[in-house]
Amino acid sequence: MTTAKTKPCPICKKPRTEEFAPFCSSRCRDLDLAKWFGDGYAVPGPAARPEDLVAPGEDGE
């Protein structure tokens, strides 16, 4: 039987915990979430135009 090496926490590089996977703690999980909210991460590609973000039927027409 082989043991797979688990990846470390992506924020602090400590060992992951099952409770907060893929992070090691709630602190690192919250830091990652704050980075998403603060535009610290970005999905590659062109920026969306505002008119493309309105679903059909939601623009009041």
Score class of each variant (00 low, 15 high):
P56K: 05
R16E: 09
Y41F: 15
W36A: 11
V43I: 12
Y41L: 07
A34K: 08
L31F: 01
I11N: 03
G45D: 04
F37D: 07
G45V: 01
K14C: 04
V43A: 10
G40M: 06
P15D: 11
Y41H: 09
P15Y: 03
D30S: 11
P8C: 08
R16Q: 13
A55P: 10
A21P: 10
K13E: 15
P50Y: 04
F23Y: 14
E58Y: 08
F20R: 02
G45H: 03
V43S: 12
A4V: 13
E61I: 05
P15L: 04
A42R: 09
F20W: 13
K35I: 00
P50T: 01
F23E: 03
G57N: 11
D32I: 00
K35S: 04
L53I: 05
K35L: 07
S26P: 00
D59K: 15
L31E: 11
S25A: 07
P44I: 06
A21N: 15
A34Q: 07
S25I: 03
R49C: 09
D39L: 06
V43N: 05
K14R: 14
P22A: 12
R27V: 14
D52S: 14
C24S: 06
A42H: 06
G40T: 12
K13V: 03
D59S: 15
E58H: 10
K14D: 12
K5T: 14
P10C: 04
T2N: 10
C12H: 04
G60A: 02
V54H: 04
D52L: 10
E51T: 07
P50V: 03
S25Q: 02
P44R: 01
A55H: 08
F23G: 02
A21F: 09
R49F: 14
K13H: 15
A21S: 15
P56F: 03
E58C: 08
P8A: 13
R49V: 09
A42V: 09
A48T: 03
T6W: 02
D32K: 00
F23V: 08
D30G: 04
P44Q: 05
E51H: 10
P8T: 01
L33R: 14
G57W: 01
D59L: 13
P44L: 02
T2I: 08
A55K: 12
R27S: 13
G38T: 14
P22G: 06
A4S: 10
E58R: 11
